[in-house]
């Protein structure tokens, strides 16, 4: 029984982290039609920034915010300088993000070396909380709460603000949105920066749970791909639901089928492709 409770808590935490990773990926994909293959690398870069900020004895939460801001700037620059020049050439954009993924991963290896670096959770969140005789690790609870707050914030941004309405319009019909005077190209920069920032925040938050190591990027990228295929491109609820589904399968799979954990992870994606190629909440097939 305890095992199931622990697994469930871990799954929900993982789901929260995956949401931070995949929300940006999904929005970028939905709006710009680019599968940003550098997204895993941005996640890892965020985590490593967190390492550096913490070594400078910055407060954990400040480190999370700094990391997010740094990644937003990097994302914005990538979009402005590279992807913008290739507007409309999907293949070229994919290849550039792939190239960037390799460059970022190698720079990380160069700067932070190949050893795994554990991140310490903030002082106040170490230890456990007890409810109804069940033990909850405090930090994991906090991660879930933060992910939920960010999810609600994103939902509010997309559904209730002018910017969100413009983004939704551009996802649905970029041509028409342009005609009505929305500067779609500026939205591209904003969304790409936002997605990168979310990945960066997710990276730092994942540090105390997963620790930071080379190869984290390659492990995270396929998860983002699966989640978007499951949930549907450009859909925030899809990314949300998909993240938790994958969070559960990831944790339970590793305990019950350790050899096949990776395969089990991909099964829902294969099923979805066969039964409903547009994903749970998507409008068009990929």
């Amino acid at each position: 029984m305890t095992l199931y409770i622990i697994l469930t808590i871990n799954s929900i935490t993982m789901g929260g982290l995956l949401f931070l990773l995949s929300a940006g990926f999904s929005l970028i994909f939905g709006l710009m039609r680019i599968p940003n293959l550098a997204h895993g690398a941005l996640f890892m870069l965020g985590a490593y920034f967190g390492v550096t900020f913490l070594r400078m004895e910055v407060n954990f939460w400040i480190a999370v915010i700094f990391s997010g801001v740094a990644l937003a700037i990097i994302g914005g620059v990538i979009e402005r300088l590279l992807l913008r020049r290739l507007a409309g050439q999907e293949l070229a954009q994919v290849l550039v993000t792939l190239g960037l993924a390799f460059i970022i991963a190698d720079v990380c290896l160069l700067i932070w070396t190949g050893d795994p670096i554990p991140l310490n959770a903030p002082e106040s969140l170490r230890g456990v909380e007890r409810f109804f005789g069940i033990v909850f690790p405090r930090y994991r609870l906090a991660v879930v709460v933060i992910a939920l707050i960010l999810a609600i914030g994103l939902w509010f941004l997309l559904e209730r603000t002018r910017l969100g309405a413009m983004i939704r319009a551009s996802v649905d019909d970029p041509e028409m949105a342009r005609v009505t005077g929305i500067r779609v190209s500026r939205l591209f920069t904003i969304v790409f920066a936002l997605g990168a920032a979310l990945a960066g925040v997710g990276g730092v938050l994942s540090g105390p749970i997963l620790s930071v190591y080379p190869g984290l990027d390659a492990e995270m990228l396929p998860l983002a791909l699966i989640i978007v295929i499951l949930g549907g491109a450009g859909s925030l609820p899809g990314a949300f639901l998909g993240s938790f589904v994958i969070g559960f399968i990831y944790n339970f799979g590793q305990v019950f089928f350790p050899d096949l954990a990776y395969v089990v992870l991909f099964l829902p994606m294969l099923l979805m492709l066969v039964l409903r190629p547009q994903g749970l909440f998507g409008k068009d097939p990929l």
């Binding site: 590279l82 020049r85 290739l86 070229a92 290849l95 550039v96 792939l98 190239g99 960037l100 993924a101 390799f102 460059i103 970022i104 991963a105 190698d106 720079v107 290896l109 160069l110």
Partner: peptide, 16 residues
């Protein structure tokens, strides 16, 4: 040692 980085740079350069 940095083959991965070179590969990435070549990718970006060729595409651009």
């Amino acid at each position: 040692e940095r083959w991965n980085m070179l590969l990435g740079v070549i990718f970006v350069a060729i595409v651009i």
